[in-house]
Design a protein around this nucleic acid. Structure first.
Lengths: 355, 355
DNA sequence: AGCAATTATGGTAGCGCTACCATTTCGCGC
DNA sequence: GCGCGAAATGGTAGCGCTACCATAATTGCT
């Protein structure tokens, strides 16, 4: 016990104001409850290991003092921060915004916090952020995609915490995985257009990150199966996606291939742009041009005509990723470390060609 | 100095493996560089206070050992986490997604991290999150809006760190403020519609959070100025905004007021829904119905016809908020603690009524 | 030259918590 | 009755860093 407020040597050793600003500490709670500090710590973290009586005493003292544990001290002492690091390419992409919403919702009443990093679709930035995150000893990591650089992959493998890769499925998970096959998603969309009777089905893609490339590969597979693939049907750019880019790319595609009678778009923003371009150019949808998008954002159903899209379960991916991470943190790893959450083709007016 | 690796009492006091997992610490760097630990600390945080020679030695030792400072230890010792807490209503609202992007970009090369909390438009949730954030002693707080509950307001005033309120301007800032007048934005949009020759100008609003209410008030002021206000022109709901909700509300508005010849929408999602509803119902835009939105998302310009909207500077608000916070953290508060960043009316095809 | 005022550097003592081990208490089987 | 393992509780010693103060080295001034 250091000393009383007016102890004999109060002049000698000035009891300088507590650095922390006078918030109650675990020692204050322990004193008030008449137990050891460690018991307070346990009562808060593993209530099962403390007798009900003491648990009640501690709870009362916590309430009386308005005690709030100091996360920084806890993290330092346990060499583990109650933080889940999340790496996404971008938050303005509403697909990832919904994933992140799912992640937050999945936290529930746990004391975990989320730390978000934006890779801007750059592997190098991803490496850098991983290092920053790891320097905090996170409880878990959630990363987007399966195309990490070798260095990033090594960091993840030695992270010393659960890792969940999201958005995609693949053969070689670092640890756990929740996603779906973009290849199959692309294939399903292209097949749907072919079955609807369209013949010159274009592909329009922006950004062309790895997932977009796999959608393109799926499209190509379906087109080759149907014997109607032609490289001139494909129009892509590395420019980030937008609605107006959809208009531009569609114009470009038609210029290259005037017989174009349908397009499968990389994502829904582009699809919306194509729809507007058709309106502007007086092309009837779906009779003259069929349109299919990817992700099935809310507006696809509300559009006129409503736009066919491949629904992806973004919110659920976020929730599931967190729930798997939480399970792994508490020691019981999910029996199934890889989850293919699938997708759903949503056929709508924009591909109902009158035959 | 505790003891050598094979000191005399190495058997007595087992030098158990370092808890932290063997990462180099500041003491290792100090030893390597031949300086005191505190000098290393200073060389990293305030290089100006260390001689160039030692600075170089320290930098070399850091590089050799791959030293990364432990944020948790730093936060505990300094009673200050290098974290900016950010409270937004929702991240799936792309308006706030862009604010957040601006915030991240505004961090630049500082060592600050961002912690995001979602209030879900709830004052109580905002209070709860503020308490969680404050328990970490953040370096600064950025909160959305000016309508905090009294309890939240008190928390902010005693936060002990810079606080920036964003998205709006108002008379009584907690500390600093970056935003614009939603009232004036709403007024400008309504006035524009009136000047374009529309007479029965409706207001469509979803969610109706405080900012939406102020836009409505601005609309009403403009309408009363023009002598054409009628309460039946206003159609609102507390349901969250969406494109399909825009369609529904517009149908509702027309049912109530068949003479409706224009609408000012709370936001761009609703405006897009109105456009689709017009397409679906065969109503010509802009001749039969004028449409104006709010925020000026990218798709407004790309729509057909392009949609008039009030451009808000969301990304800039985020950037500016961080730069003000950073200035305040380093002691030089911006001379101008309140910034009205304004807005810009973007007149487009959807309100070009042929007269 | 002499001395205060200023720098640059270092030592010490925590920040508030938890890992680790020690101690105590209890119930159980023989 | 006694030993023994399990459960409950506590003490001690840090986790890695920085605030605070002390000391040493330098400067500026009269």
């Amino acid at each position: 016990m250091p000393q009383d407020e007016s102890g004999p040597d109060a002049e000698l050793v000035k009891p300088r104001a507590r650095r922390g600003g006078g918030r109650p500490t675990i020692a204050d709670v322990a004193l008030r409850a008449g137990v050891g500090a460690i018991t307070v710590s346990r009562a808060l973290r593993e209530p099962g290991r403390v007798s009900p009586e003491l648990r009640r005493l501690v709870a009362a003292a916590v309430a009386e003092l308005g005690y709030v544990p100091d996360r920084n001290a806890r993290a330092l002492a346990s060499a583990r921060a109650d933080v889940i690091g999340v790496l996404v390419p971008s938050l303005t992409n509403s697909v990832f915004a919904e994933v992140v919403r799912g992640i937050y919702d999945g936290l529930g009443d746990s004391h975990l916090q989320v730390q978000i990093g934006h890779t801007h679709y750059s592997g190098l930035e991803e490496e850098r952020l991983l290092q920053v995150f790891l320097s905090q000893r996170p409880s878990a990591l959630i990363v987007s995609g399966i195309d990490q650089t070798p260095a990033a992959r090594a960091l993840l493998e030695n992270a010393g915490c659960p890792v969940v890769q999201i958005m995609e499925t693949g053969p070689d998970p670092v640890d756990m995985m929740v996603g779906f096959s973009h290849f199959e998603g692309g294939r399903a969309a292209a097949r749907h257009l072919a079955e609807a009777g369209y013949r010159n089905i274009g592909f329009i893609g922006a950004r062309m990150d790895p997932r977009s490339k796999r959608r393109l590969a799926g499209y190509r597979a379906a087109m080759e199966d149907a014997g109607i693939f032609d490289p001139r049907l494909v129009t892509t750019t590395t420019v980030p996606s937008s609605v107006s880019l959809g208009r531009d790319l569609f114009r470009e595609a038609r210029a290259k291939m005037p017989a174009l009678d349908a397009v499968f778009c990389n994502n829904d923003d582009l699809a919306l742009g194509v729809l507007f371009e058709c309106h502007g150019a007086g092309l009837a949808v779906p009779s003259a041009v069929g349109i299919a998008g990817f992700n099935d954002l809310e507006m696809m159903e509300a559009a006129f005509p409503s736009i066919t899209s491949v629904r992806t379960h973004r919110y659920e991916i976020g929730r599931l990723a967190v729930s798997m991470a939480r399970a792994a943190i508490s020691g019981d790893r999910p029996p199934q470390p890889m989850v293919d959450i699938g997708f759903e083709l949503m056929p709508r007016e924009s591909t109902k060609r009158a035959r």
